[in-house]
Design a protein around this nucleic acid. Structure first.
Lengths: 343, 343
DNA sequence: AAGGTCATGAGGCACGTACCTCAGACGAAG
DNA sequence: CTTCGTCTGAGGTACGTGCCTCATGACCTT
């Protein structure tokens, strides 16, 4: 059964009005009585009409502008996210989408808020942010939304803000998975150090929550040490881990739910206990890959950056159709990597 | 740096010819001297011109027709693939793509070849097949390609045919991953039964190859029993597994690299040895999910059917642009599922 | 030289939407 | 009554491409 999509012409005919009126309703232009607008809305709903985004962008001879705000610094995962955006510049252009990548200072809420406030709806239809949970960022998101810019969160969510969508993994589930693996690795129980980047990052806080809950429920023999905050910095993370290992000679495992994995791996190797500790980290990047290969890290939980960017772009496109309803996206999978299934 | 995409007008101007000539070259219509065509090709390359697929489909007022041939029967994974196609009917229509789903008799090469031969290029731009490696299918693929239908393989590849692309996981790597997990589960070694659907299915043959190679290299203490072929049928698979378990009271593990997992799980439970056997299966479906939850199955390796269909659709779109070069697609991830990270 | 074929240019209409102008129709206020 | 403002319809042009017709000129054949 091949059915043609409804067009504005069909809507006009069905509503008994002219094309111009349908156009005014669709694009929120003034000069339509409420009763008439009602008729048009009804026809749109009845026919299941949805604007043809491609024809629309073509007619406007304008690309969809999507701006990605991604933290800079030495966090390899953020680097991978940024690369994933760059990789799609060309193919996005083929779909009339213009992607822009801006690196913002990591863990600097004021800088991100300012950048958001500087966005102009004329040069930005949609903004994607990797944000920590701070009042000034929430305010900036709400302000951008009021200016007509759709904001979506990437990696770490910002509930309670006007963000239209969250693109990322279920971080509570990720924390639970880490706990479940760690519990199996340590059937006798023991101490496990937990290192976060910052608990202001909701993804980190959620992973910790999931990890702690699953341990309590299923592996009460495991004692959690920490969390400590390494601010996603390799040097700081390394010295924190070194200190924890020195202080606890009976440490049995480490769960780094944030970044700074290069520091983690050096500290593990410097301790001389690398092979005897069960270690779980996040994001498949150069340091964690090296850690897996050398045996310093046992498991890496990964959120596919390419998949996240792909879904972000798809969601931005759907949002551009201007529906009020939330946009459906494919869920992002949590990848589990051992030394043997490295991509 | 915002750069406008090149259009046919730009190409015409750059090549010093008229729009009509560019059009003739682009659409392979006759009436252009080789020397002139050369000039146009050169301008296209120089400007990096690529046809705007959306404008093109709109101008033709014609949707892109993509036909999926997916085996029917009781194979839950194939059911999931089919559902994944159906789920995208609507969103594909929004991109001027008309998807069609046809279920063909599983493991019946003649039926699939006949279906392929019945395709008309007027009502099918691209065909996606899940095929076993048989000469008559290869011949049908080549014939379809000559008729102007792009054929791609899904799940299981068909090298040596005129298929334009393969969408699926790296099955050798999947087999290696299974071996690596099994090896760790059985540090003392022991007998592991291997069950396939059909070794005419290249994905199954490749998994076996990877499994066997990784065992030989890394876990020589493990002895492989089989493979036996259960033809992806639950009853047949169940009785095969039951027989193997009865014959080998010292069986330590089972690797089912094909389907028929409902039969696998019943046989395991009927044997009374479910908990003491390490079991690895493929595809996260109802039976394997139940197996994970009950503990009868330890690990499931999964190829995300939604992701495969998404990539297949994206690849079909790219192919429609008519480039001779192979089309780049995102790789499909091999998911690893334990009881604790079930989606 | 006349007729033929072939290569090419010029231009138009169509697809679905955006955005513009202009002309009426209508009701309310003066 | 006129005048104004608001609502609505009619129709045009544009976006990038496909596909069509028609005209022109060059070259070949007889």
């Amino acid at each position: 059964m091949i059915r043609r999509r409804a067009t504005v012409h069909d809507v006009a005919r069905a509503a008994g009005v002219s094309l111009a009126t349908v156009d005014r309703v669709l694009n929120g232009r003034p000069g339509v009585r409420p009763a008439t607008a009602e008729k048009v809305e009804e026809a749109i709903a009845r026919l299941g009409f949805s604007r043809d985004l491609n024809a629309s962008l073509m007619a406007r001879s304008r690309d969809l502008h999507v701006v990605f705000f991604i933290p800079d610094g030495t966090n390899e995962f953020m680097g991978a996210l940024a690369e994933a955006v760059e990789k799609r510049f060309a193919s996005a252009l083929a779909d009339r989408m213009h992607l822009e990548l801006r690196r913002t200072k990591a863990l600097d809420a004021a800088a991100l808020a300012e950048a958001l406030n500087g966005l102009d709806a004329k040069t930005c239809d949609c903004a994607l942010i990797v944000a920590s949970e701070e009042p000034e960022i929430i305010a900036a998101v709400d302000a951008a939304h009021r200016r007509g810019i759709a904001v979506m969160t990437l990696v770490s969510d910002l509930p309670g803000s006007a963000r239209r969508n969250f693109i990322g993994i279920d971080n509570v589930a990720a924390g639970r998975t880490a706990a479940s693996l760690m519990g199996r690795f340590l059937p006798q129980g023991g101490k496990v150090a937990v290192v976060a980047g910052s608990l202001h990052l909701r993804d980190h806080a959620e992973r910790l929550e999931g990890f702690r809950a699953a341990l309590t429920e299923e592996f009460p023999a495991i004692e959690l040490v920490g969390p400590v905050e390494g601010h996603d910095d390799r040097t700081e993370t390394g010295s924190l881990v070194g200190k924890l290992l020195a202080e606890h000679s009976d440490m049995a495992g480490v769960y780094n739910l944030g970044a700074g994995n290069a520091g983690l791996v050096s500290a593990l190797q410097a301790s001389g206990r690398a092979k005897s500790l069960r270690v779980i980290a996040h994001e498949l990047t150069e340091p964690t890959r090296a850690g897996l290969v050398s045996g310093a890290i046992d498991v890496v939980l990964d959120q596919n950056p390419d998949g996240e960017i792909r879904e972000a772009i798809a969601a931005a496109r759907s949002l551009a159709l201007g529906t009020a309803r939330p946009v459906a996206t494919d869920p992002i999978e949590i990848g589990i990597f051992l030394r043997d299934n490295l991509r």
